[in-house]
Design a binder for these strands. Structure first.
Lengths: 219, 219
DNA sequence: GTGAGGATCTATCGAAAGGTGGACGACCGG
DNA sequence: CCGGTCGTCCACCTTTCGATAGATCCTCAC
């Protein structure tokens, strides 16, 4: 059996000890260190190399989300389980964006916490059921629209032009990229607008982004 | 104790019966109907009004995702738990976009399934830990960037103009909306571009969208 | 008070973007 | 073979955009 090396970060001593007790009570989990703020958590994590970091999001000084950002930047970053008392969108989405692997509210059962640590160690993730619905609806609002019938009307050339346009290239730059004349690009753009029922290139750019035609840069 | 009324939709009879056995074995769960394809699932759901629909995503005819779309459009829509054998992004993200409340792979433990049904009935959600990591990283790529320092440089007027611009309005339309002259709008746009370090209004529109300044239409 | 700085507004001019018409070759069914 | 359709290309002309200079008003420190 492999022991899971865990770092616990929480600014309240009582919470820290409670977490340590719960986790150390498991035969396969070993709390190797604790931290009382974000900066210390980052230092400890980089030095002790835990498998999993259990991190309170609300801490003085560097808060949990900033700490997670730092950890994610490191190579061989540990998997982070975010813990919070307060069920705020800001915490949830901030933590997810920063790259946590799990998110639990502090009113969870101790055995849920233990399960979460094991799941994270296995490379899986866990989101508190209480916040999952909100995550899903936010995700649904953000996710690219499925391919629409209109998109199939575009010829390959027009598709290509649309992708370049959506990255902010001018007609001249698109022309250079395709080694054609600018006048030709204008025709393509015009046909794109007509086929998609749009009015300006700005609409086309937004359309392309909302349909996932343009890969977003890494955060 | 309230009994949870469940509809099971799966094209394979064996799977249907297995699910029924598992769920009906619970005292608080009552499988009130089954369906063998998406269309039937929608009919049954609209007629029998289950609390929870357990739906296989891969079915002949109308598939699960299309069925979920239909169900979500209905009022007092049931909570849908998506089930799938195949762990494909297409299924996962498609189902989430369509509005499921839970997503499980079919190799899950029966008691996980039962727990999921109960969670959904309580208004919560459940995502299979095996796919949670992928959901999080996709979400992180999609989520708006946090407010950057540059955004604070914009005056209220410029903010307003930026939001209108990002919705595809021309300078003239923005001018009309603000009851100012078009020439003025051009100045605002210019200062926006300068402050944000962008070159054209297309860049500004993309920037605004990526930073969540523009609310997206409902899917 | 007064002058500095910022926010808002306006006007002008060269540079892009957008609308239109048409040329050329590829492909397909008669 | 040939007329039709489609994709790609180019040039002309009008509208819109983007950069720049300057005007007005407000606030706040001195």
């Amino acid at each position: 059996m492999v022991t899971i090396r865990v770092l616990v970060a929480d600014d309240q001593e009582a919470a820290r000890e409670a977490l340590r007790l719960i986790l150390d009570g498991e035969p396969d989990i070993d709390v190797i260190a604790t931290a009382a703020d974000g900066a210390e958590a980052v230092r400890q994590a980089l030095w002790r190399r835990p498998d999993v970091v259990v991190m309170d999001l609300r801490m003085p000084g560097m808060d949990g989300i900033a700490a997670i950002d730092r950890l994610a930047a490191a190579d061989s970053a540990p998997r982070v389980l975010a813990l919070t008392t307060f069920d705020l969108d800001e915490y949830l989405f901030g933590a997810l964006r920063a790259g946590v692997a799990g998110f639990l509210l502090k009113d969870s059962d101790p055995d849920v916490l233990v399960t979460a640590v094991r799941e994270l160690h296995q490379g899986r993730g866990l989101i508190d059921p209480q916040v999952t619905s909100r995550l899903i609806s936010r995700f649904a609002a953000l996710a690219p629209r499925p391919a629409t019938p209109e998109l199939d009307l575009l010829t390959p050339r027009e598709h290509h032009v649309l992708r370049l346009l959506a990255r902010g290239l001018s007609n001249g730059e698109i022309a250079a990229a395709c080694t054609i004349e600018e006048g030709t690009v204008k025709t393509h753009v015009n046909r794109i607008l007509t086929k998609l029922g749009l009015r300006t290139r700005v609409h086309a750019a937004i359309y392309a982004h909302e349909h996932g035609l343009v890969a977003r840069d890494a955060p």
